[in-house]
């Protein structure tokens, strides 16, 4: 009951989400934060059980800080995504899965990256991705407008369009769009 999208542009990444939290046919919140910043170079968009998703983000936030301090350089987006997928996988194998789907987006010294991660523990690098009940509608927009040479500003507009389209036709999504962009830094 959500729409989240993530896009990779040539000079950064963008995440967008709706703001509705549902309890069955009831709108529980009209101002839900579904995009969580891990730090200045990594963010996660969440769909599914909020508590599970927030827990995973908190673990990654702590681990990224610890590892950067210990080894003297930050974790890459790929390393961070792999850590999340390991947590998902161990949850699934212990019959206590995390009920969440995450879009992990960030920049590192190799450039911008978007990964999709789900409760099975799979991890996939994507150019654009959407998740949640509104994702089939969002994908319609993304499939027709996305191309890999997009600039961050154009990617941002497409992400907003995709979520807006989903909000029009998906009853689980609505109440406005949140959007976050992370540009590739000039000096890393």
């Amino acid at each position: 009951m959500t729409t989240i999208v993530g896009l990779r542009a040539v000079d950064g990444v963008v995440l967008a989400s709706d703001r509705r939290a549902s309890k069955g046919f009831f709108i529980a919140s009209k101002t839900t934060q579904k995009i969580l910043k891990v730090d200045e170079t990594l963010a996660v968009a969440i769909a599914g059980l909020v508590s599970d998703a927030v827990y995973l983000v908190n673990v990654v936030r702590a681990e990224r800080k610890l590892i950067a301090l210990r080894r003297g350089y930050p974790m890459s987006v790929a390393e961070s995504s792999k850590l999340i997928s390991n947590l998902f996988y161990s949850g699934m194998r212990n019959y206590l899965p995390y009920f969440a789907e995450l879009i992990v987006a960030g920049v590192d010294d190799e450039g911008p990256h978007v990964y999709s991660s789900d409760m099975s523990g799979s991890i996939m690098a994507e150019e654009f991705v959407s998740s949640g009940s509104g994702s089939p509608i969002a994908y319609g927009v993304l499939e027709s407008l996305y191309n890999p040479n997009l600039k961050l500003e154009d990617a941002r507009n497409i992400a907003v369009k995709a979520v807006e389209a989903a909000m029009q036709r998906d009853p689980g999504s609505g109440n406005g769009v949140d959007v976050l962009t992370i540009p590739v830094r000039k000096v890393m």
Binding site: R70, Y73, K82, L83
Partner: peptide, 15 residues
């Protein structure tokens, strides 16, 4: 490598 899908840094290994 299993945990992060990346080579370990030498400082952490030495620790």
């Amino acid at each position: 490598r299993l945990l992060f899908d990346a080579a370990m840094d030498i400082g952490s290994l030495v620790d």
